[in-house]
Structure formats: structure tokens, C-alpha cells
Design a protein around this nucleic acid. Sequence first.
DNA 1: CATAAACATTTTAGGCTTGAAATATCTTCT
DNA 2: AGAAGATATTTCAAGCCTAAAATGTTTATG
Lengths: 166, 166
Amino acid sequence: MSEGGSVRPGKAGDGAREPAASKARLRLWLKLLKATKHVEAELRENLRVTFDTTLPRFDVMAALYRAESGLKMSELSSVLRVSNGNVTGIVDRLVDDGILVRIPVDNDRRATTVRLTKAGREQFALMAARHEAWVDSLLDGVDVSEAQDMLDQLERIASKSNTKEA
Amino acid sequence: MSEGGSVRPGKAGDGAREPAASKARLRLWLKLLKATKHVEAELRENLRVTFDTTLPRFDVMAALYRAESGLKMSELSSVLRVSNGNVTGIVDRLVDDGILVRIPVDNDRRATTVRLTKAGREQFALMAARHEAWVDSLLDGVDVSEAQDMLDQLERIASKSNTKEA
DNA sequence: CATAAACATTTTAGGCTTGAAATATCTTCT
DNA sequence: AGAAGATATTTCAAGCCTAAAATGTTTATG
């Protein structure tokens, strides 16, 4: 958690505009972070005790569940927005557990495609249903229809300078 | 918390679980997560290139900056909501770097208080100012005054305590 | 007093994460 | 063809993170 709140900066480095707005944005950010981490921690815990798995594993499986024909390692890493080396490790373990298979790509011996096994698809279907229910329950206090504005603003945040340039 | 039936819990208090609402909440969650991760990644990168440090280190320093008389390891871990063992490692490294000191607690040889050194306080003051400016800039697209509702809803989410038992 | 329980912290084992270096393969250009 | 550059992936070193076990210390209880 980035808890940089309630500190008197005096003079900021780059974008020192109105101090009040800046502080308000900082508070908003801290709340955003706190709520997100809270939900994430609950989901992690639920995945751990219910399915003996982890969020990163779930994320990899989710991405591959959607891509029925599988994804190359680089595609996976790009979809999940994590480093190549990171994906390598997670996939290694999922392959060991019989949840994923690596399939050589024709005409390119550098690349491999990764795909869910039948067992992997079945496991994920179960997990996804529970996951959706967990999220539903965790976000119970949020009026989704009224949150549309914020949602759109978040969308803008997340896509800002996100065009692979950063 | 969401330990009941995966599809239709029907517990006291929570709203009826319509599939559409459930999907909408899932989408909201994914957006929340995406936006948060994006901002967090930017802050991490900024801290790395500008101050050669990390978010966890920043968080520890922030907590101690506010607590002038220092915090015990357990207090630190509770404030930051991370495990004891985790705090041990981060503090170890900050002590090595002369940013923190460990001070024995009178009348309790189990505990130690951790405090920023003078150098640590100075470094953090610089970082906090830049940090606030970064957040201000990253949340530029968000109308904070209009986000109050969402903010309050997030507050509720984050404070929904998980009394694991019962 | 003895000793059991509670507490504060560290250690351990294992997984996640990154940026950078290393491998292997493919493509392009002369 | 052969060299140079681009691409796909893995390996590596280092730090973050957790749950659980271990260690040392204090408090409560018989």
C-alpha cells in the first residue's frame, strides 16, 4: 500500500498545481488502492483455501480459457501485462500440474503455444463461477449503475500512455 | 463471506444475485484492478528511476514518517497490512542502507521499535513530494469531486472486515 | 515457583515479480 | 551464402510476499 498521505511537501517537483486538488487526488488514490488490495487479498485467500491455487495461476488460466486455440508465451505475457520471465515460471508449474500443455509452433522453433488441457478447462470453469460469486459479494456495497462515470474515468486512467509505448 | 452456495447464496442482507448484476460487478472489478495496477506500476517505475527505490520501501518510510517516535515491528506490519516476516526483510535492508534504526523497547526484550534516521526523514520528504505530484498527474482524468460517491463506496468495501469465524 | 499460554519477532520454504543477460531461431540485406 | 539485426523464450539475481514453524520473552495460572 502506498501510504504517502498527510505529508507536507512544500514545493513539488513537476506538476504543482492547486495543493487542495492534489491532496484530494492523493486521498482518492489511497482509497482506490486500499479497496483494491482488500478485494484482491480476499480473492487470493478464497482461491487458496478453496482451490489450493493462486491469483497469478488463475489469471493465466483465465486468459487461456478465453483463447481456445491457445496463446504464445509472448502473447500471454502481453495480455497479462507481466514480464516474459514471470510467465515462464507460472506456466512451468501449471504444466507440471497437468493444467497446461506447451505446443511447438509450426515454422517457428523459437515460439511455443500454451493451451489448457481438458482437466485445466474443467478446473477453470469451476473456479471462474466461484470467482464471479466472490467478486459479486465483495462489491456488494457498490451501486454499479451509479459507478459508470467513475468506471469510465478509470478506463481513461488505465489506458493513458498504455499503447505499448510506456 | 461468500462461503455459501456459489450461485444463489440467499444469505441475510445481501441483495438478490441477478446474473446481469453479477457480470456488471465483475467488469467493474476488472476495471478497478486494471486502473490500480496501471497507476501502481507507474509509481513503481518512477520511484525506481528517480530514487532507485521501491514501493514497499516507500510505504515503510511513509508509515514511519508519520509516526515520529517510531513503530514496533508488529505495528508496522499491521499498519501496512503485510506479514511480519515481510516487514522484517524490508526493514533489514533499510537499516543496512542507513535509512532506519532499530531501537530496543524498554521492559520488553522481545520487541523493537523502528525509526527513520535523519537521513531517512530527509530522503522521504523529497520522495513524498514527488510522489504526490506523480499521483496528481496520473489521476488527471478523474474528477475528484464527482468521484465522492464511488470513493465512499470504496471505503465501505475496504472496511468490510473479514471476521473469518462465524 | 513452575509452567503453560500468549506474544513479538525472525526464519524458512515456496511462489511471484522484475529488468537484464543469455540462448536459440528467424529474417533481412548485401 | 554470410553477417547483422530482430524476435521468442529462458535464465539469473535480487527483492517482495505469505503461511507456517521456530525462537526468545513475558504474563497468567495453578
